[in-house]
Nucleic acid binder design. Structure first.
Lengths: 131, 131
DNA sequence: AATAGGGCTTCCATTAACTGGAAGGTCAAG
DNA sequence: CTTGACCTTCCAGTTAATGGAAGCCCTATT
């Protein structure tokens, strides 16, 4: 599929068409238009929309998404401030992974070992919020 | 610290006091009150607030947080529907981890190997949205 | 050729999850 | 006994969408 309508790119990216139009309103993804006014999307835009879908669901703000997208668009990517920004986001990602690993092990414990007991004795709630 | 004021629990959980009050408005965390009307928070509430802070920053909705908290409060935690819910959230967590790992490796590539090239040739943007 | 449908457009209102600010009560320190 | 930090409620504003109405575009049949 060379280019897509908003409905098609919505299906392909997982983002509602409404949201995709909203991202255009705030200047995140600016697709070209047909003569009839219809938006169309190429691989380039699809990639960004997929990225936005993922990054938003992982708790990155729109502003962080804007920064991350700009990392990939920056022509002079080797410049040290761009690299610093990337490193900062890398750290943030690593923290999120650790937190999710902690939630994962808590949920696993919950599923496997905490059968039929009565709370306040259950230690899980104490793990709940500690890295 | 046996019990805390909202300011103290805000510092301890990382959530703004405003947000903590908001969570009370929507029935997530209902702290007891002093005679003078001041809220106070015990370890129990602190744990939940820390959990909320983390889960929200990882992209879980308030409603998912409510479900996750209820998992820990459910007295009959062994019941199969509670377990099913926990398993469903576990899967969600695992997907998020994979997505973050993907972002992590993309950022690492960006930082290390993509020095000074000029975009459209850079392959990173293609990796950007693929698991 | 007209017309029915589904998808597209814009615009305006509403929701979810906060966030800011005003107006005033409480309390420990000086 | 007042000053200042922290608490209270209430109401308004922001961010990031989401819902719905009114109308245009395109294809596909009657």
């Amino acid at each position: 599929m060379e280019v897509m309508t908003i409905g098609e790119v919505s299906a392909a990216s997982g983002l509602p068409a409404k949201t995709i139009r909203y991202y255009e309103d705030i200047g995140l993804i600016l697709p070209p238009r047909r003569d009839n006014g219809y938006r169309y999307y190429r691989a380039q835009e699809l990639h960004k929309l997929r990225f936005l879908h993922r990054a938003r669901s992982l708790g990155f703000t729109i502003d962080e998404c804007r920064q991350l997208l700009s990392l990939y668009e920056d022509e002079s990517r080797a410049s040290s401030d761009v690299k610093a920004l990337a490193r900062q986001h890398l750290k943030e990602v690593e923290v999120k992974i650790l937190e999710l690993e902690s939630m994962k092990s808590t949920l696993k414990t919950l599923i496997n070992s905490c059968r039929g007991d009565h709370r306040p004795d259950c230690p899980i709630i104490d793990d709940l919020a500690s890295v």
